[in-house]
Design a protein around this nucleic acid. Sequence first.
DNA 1: CTGAAAGCGCTTACAG
DNA 2: CTGAAAGCGCTTACAG
Lengths: 327, 327
Amino acid sequence: MRVTADDVARAAGVSRAMVSRAFTDGASISVAKRTHVRAVAEELGYHPNLIARGLTGSRTGLVAVVVGAVARPYEAWLLEHLGQAVRKTGSWPLLIQVGPDDEVDSALENALAYQVDGAIVAAGSVSKRLAERCKSVGVPVVLVGRILNDESADSVCCDNRQGMAEIVDFLVARGRRKIAWIGGTADTFSNLERFAGLKIGLAAQGLEIFDIRQGDYSLDSGLAQGLALLTSPQLPDAIVCGNDAMAMGVVDAARRLKIAVPDQLSIVGFDDIPAAAWDPYLLTTSRNPVQETVDAALELLVSRIADDTQPFRSVRLAAKLVVRSSA
Amino acid sequence: MRVTADDVARAAGVSRAMVSRAFTDGASISVAKRTHVRAVAEELGYHPNLIARGLTGSRTGLVAVVVGAVARPYEAWLLEHLGQAVRKTGSWPLLIQVGPDDEVDSALENALAYQVDGAIVAAGSVSKRLAERCKSVGVPVVLVGRILNDESADSVCCDNRQGMAEIVDFLVARGRRKIAWIGGTADTFSNLERFAGLKIGLAAQGLEIFDIRQGDYSLDSGLAQGLALLTSPQLPDAIVCGNDAMAMGVVDAARRLKIAVPDQLSIVGFDDIPAAAWDPYLLTTSRNPVQETVDAALELLVSRIADDTQPFRSVRLAAKLVVRSSA
DNA sequence: CTGAAAGCGCTTACAG
DNA sequence: CTGAAAGCGCTTACAG
C-alpha cells in the first residue's frame, strides 16, 4: 500500500494539515515540526501524491509539450531543450506528439483534461476555438516557431525573413544570381516566412527566384528535389532550402551528380542543426537560436501563469548566418 | 470556470454518477441516457477531469518514459516510437530526460508521485531499491535496451552479442584480420554486451582485438578516436564501433585522412539509425529493431498492469546485419 | 438501469 | 504556529 499523509500524521502525532504544510514551501509551520514531520515521512517512505495535490491546489505541475515528428533532427534538438527548460521550472513535460496540423487541437484537448498548468506548442497550429478554450480555463499556451497575429497566445519565433535576407545578401555577394528554392511543407508558418524572406531579399537585389521546388522538410525530399533541379536544362548556381535537412539532401544530390560545391553550386540551409556541422555537409545556414527560443518560451509561460491579464507578447529572435563551406 | 460533472448532471437531469457512467465504457447505463448525457456534456463543453479520475480510479493514464539525451539520433528515434506506442495504449507519456545513470532513481521517484500506471526506462539503470519500491506500490517498470538479471522487472533488448558475432563473421569473410574497437560510454549495458560479443566472435575466429579505444557514443568521439586509430603506427583494417554515430565519425576521420573505405578500411556501426543510410555514410551496421523493441516493451507493460503476479520476462530481439558500403 | 453516499489524498480558508 | 472541517471532481460499491 501507499503511504498517505494520514499515516505520517498519525506516526508524527500531528494533524494531516501539518503534514501538508511540512511539504509546502513557505507554509506556516515551526521549523522543529517541519523537520520532525519530514523525518517521519522519510522513514515511512511517504511522498505526497501529486495527483491529489493537483486536484486541490491550483497547479498540477504538468506542462504539455506539443512537438512534431520527434525523430527529425530539428525537432529532437528542440525537444531536448524544451524538456529541460520545463524541468527547470519545476514542472514535468507531458509529451504530445502530433502528425498533421489538425491533430494539435485534439491533443491539446486531452492535455487540458489533465489540467496542465500550461502548454508549449512547437508543432502545427492551434485553432482559434481551442485557443479560446485554453484561455477560458486559464491554461496559457505559448507557441514556438510561429507568431500569432490574432492576439490569442504568446509566441516565440526566430526572424525567418531577416535570416533569409542575410542568406540572399551573402549569396549575391558571392556572385550568385540564379538562386533556386526548395521549400518545406507547404502552408507551414516557417516555410511561408522563409519563402517570403527569400523573395523580398532577392527583390531588393533586383533578382527573381530562379526556380521553385517543394519538399517536406526531410532529407530525402531535399535529395529528390535537388536531383530534379540539378538535372534540369537550366542549372541554378545556388539552392536555398527551407531547412537544413533538405539542404543536406541537396549536398548529397550534388555529390551524386559530381557538381562541385561551392564552386559550381552554393547550397544553403536553415536552422543550423548539429548535423549541419558534420564533415560531409559543412552547411552554410542560418542559425535558429533554439536555446534562446526555449528560454523565451518558458519565460512567457511562467510570467503568464503568474499574471494572465498582461497583454500577449510575441518574441522575435534574430537568426544568425553561419558560413561553412557549402556556399 | 471549468464545467464539472455536477453541472452536466444538473443540466441533464440525472445524477452525477450517471455522468460518470456516460463517460465510462462498459458502465451500466441505458443507451438513451448515455447519448443524452453526452450530448448535454458536449453542449456545455464538459471534459472529465483526468486528475480527479486518477485520484479515484485505479489508473491515471500516465506512463513515465525515461530517456537519455533526446537530441541524439538513436534516442530521438526510439522516443518517437515509444511515445506513439504509449499513446496507442490510450495512455500519455510523461517525459523524463535523464543525464548520468544516477539520476534515473530520482526521476522515477517523481514519476511515482504522479501515480503513473507504469514506467518505461530506456536510459540508465534502476537501483534495486527503487525497483522494489515500484513493485511495492504496484507500478510496473519495463527496461528497454538492457536485460535485468536480478528478476525485478521486465526487459527488452536486442541481441547485442549475436549482432556483434555476425559483424565479426562478415568482416573476417571479407578478409579483415586487424579489427579495432571503439566502445561507447563505459559500463553501459549495451557497450558491455557489444564489446563482449566482439571478443567472443573474434575468439571463435582465432583472432584478438587489434586495438581498443573508448568514445561516448557521440559522432565527435568517433571522429576523435577514429583519427587517433588511423594515425597510429599500426593501422587496423577494420574498425567496429559501439554505435552508428561513432562509426559515422570514423567515416569522417577516414575521409579526412584519405583512407579508402571499404578498400583499405572497413567501418561498422550498430543500431542502423536513419542517418546510417545517408549517402556520405552508407554504413554497414547491425539493425537494432526499434519498432519491435517498443512493441514488446508495451506488451510487457500492459500485460503486467493486467496481472502483476506473472513471472518477469526478458525479451531478446535479434539484431540483423545490414550491409552497405562502409565495410 | 439509477441515485445517494462514501471516499480517493490532498490543500486551504477558518478559528484559535 | 496548529487543528478540525470543508472541498477539489471524480468513481465505486451499495441499495433499490
